[in-house]
Simulated assay, not measured.
Amino acid sequence: MRFLALPAALLLATPLFASEDIADQYPQSLLYSKPVEVIPHVFTAIGATAPPTYDNAGHNNNLSFIITGDGVIVVNSGASYLLARALHDEIKIQTDQPVKLVINENGQGHAMLGNNYWIEQGVPVLAHADAATEFADSAGQSLTALKSYARENATGTEPMGPTDTFTDPRDITMGDFRVEILHLGPAHSPGDTQVWLPDQGLMIAGDIAFHERMPPIFEGTCTLCWIETWEGPLTDLSPTYIIPGHGHPTNFAQVTRYTRDYLVHLRGEIAKHLDVGGDLAGAYYVDQSAYTLLDTFEELATKNAGVVFTEMEFE
């Protein structure tokens, strides 16, 4: 049975609700914001859409949890030991059910650096094998960055990879929920993971989906593959509700507009630039004006254009 009542402010969230300029929405906790219940028994603590800072303690992605009736499933351990503990404190306010599983949405620090807190509690941590490999390669750099901006809030953080990995989809039934743990295909970063609740029509999508902040495109990201993943297996599922990697819960049309459509637009602009013999220096200035309202536009737009130029130059 699908739940049809999602608060309008969440379901219709647009860049107007983005929070890049708000230092902290929940001062009594290390979390940037208090967890909200998106549909019955599914919560998310919405992170800042700004880059990680001391004020937001690195909570600039969404930390979600599902209270299944027979235990809790957490999606993302957070950017530090203390953030993971702060999320656990909020879970304990909502339920006395134990956390039975943590899922990392990708191999970035803000998804995995809190793993050691959960492992210390005896909770298994699951990630895609490619995400685990990425974290193993970048954990030292991620920890150095955390210590630089978070200072004392990095205390206790020791990089630990997941205790278990997957490549094929995992299907879990826990309490009242069927949960499918998926890697739909290449997208934002290696091993991007989506947590799909088929009975509720809700996907905790991770960084395959953006709508309030500009999608970051990394060196090595295949934007054509990302579009193909979107137009294939993700569209086949067409979730009613989306909890994206960053920003407020919303609907599939909204994340399509600001993720898939943005990627198509940027690739189209770079293609036009290449057709007239344009070079990398000129690629930074292709037209992305339709997306200036997205948070992190200033930080990412020119970088994204350069990466896509390099990707498309020899396609």
Rank of each mutant, 00 (worst) to 15 (best):
A84R: 12
T250A: 00
G185T: 00
H248R: 07
Q141F: 05
H248F: 07
A154H: 14
T53V: 10
D70F: 07
M160G: 01
S238A: 13
F17W: 12
T167N: 10
P52E: 00
V99E: 05
A23Y: 13
E313A: 08
L224A: 15
Y26P: 13
F177G: 00
I103P: 10
P7M: 12
G278S: 02
R260C: 12
T229P: 07
Y149R: 09
D89W: 07
I91E: 01
L82W: 01
G69C: 07
E180K: 11
T95V: 06
L182F: 11
T229A: 04
Y258W: 15
M174R: 11
H41E: 09
F135P: 04
R170Q: 15
E298T: 11
T49V: 15
H265C: 06
M160I: 01
Q200D: 08
Y284F: 15
L266I: 14
D130W: 01
P35I: 00
V75K: 11
A111E: 00
H273F: 08
G206C: 04
V36W: 05
Y54A: 02
H265Q: 12
A301S: 11
G140T: 02
K34C: 09
E90Q: 15
W196Y: 14
E134Q: 14
Q25N: 14
A9D: 11
V36Y: 09
L197W: 12
T44W: 00
P215I: 02
T144W: 11
V74C: 10
A281G: 03
A84K: 10
L30E: 06
D207S: 06
D295I: 09
V75L: 09
G156K: 03
F135V: 01
T163D: 05
T95A: 05
G220D: 05
G247F: 08
D137Q: 13
D207T: 00
S138C: 04
H183F: 02
H273E: 09
E231C: 00
D192G: 01
F43R: 07
V286S: 11
Y81F: 15
T173W: 14
Y291N: 03
A132T: 03
A50G: 10
T256A: 01
I208L: 13
E105N: 07
K92S: 06
A48Q: 07
G107P: 03
L30Q: 06
P40E: 06
V307H: 11
N116S: 15
S142Y: 12
P244C: 06
I243P: 09
I242K: 00
N115D: 03
I204L: 15
L10N: 13
T296D: 04
Q288D: 05
G232K: 12
G47N: 01
D295R: 14
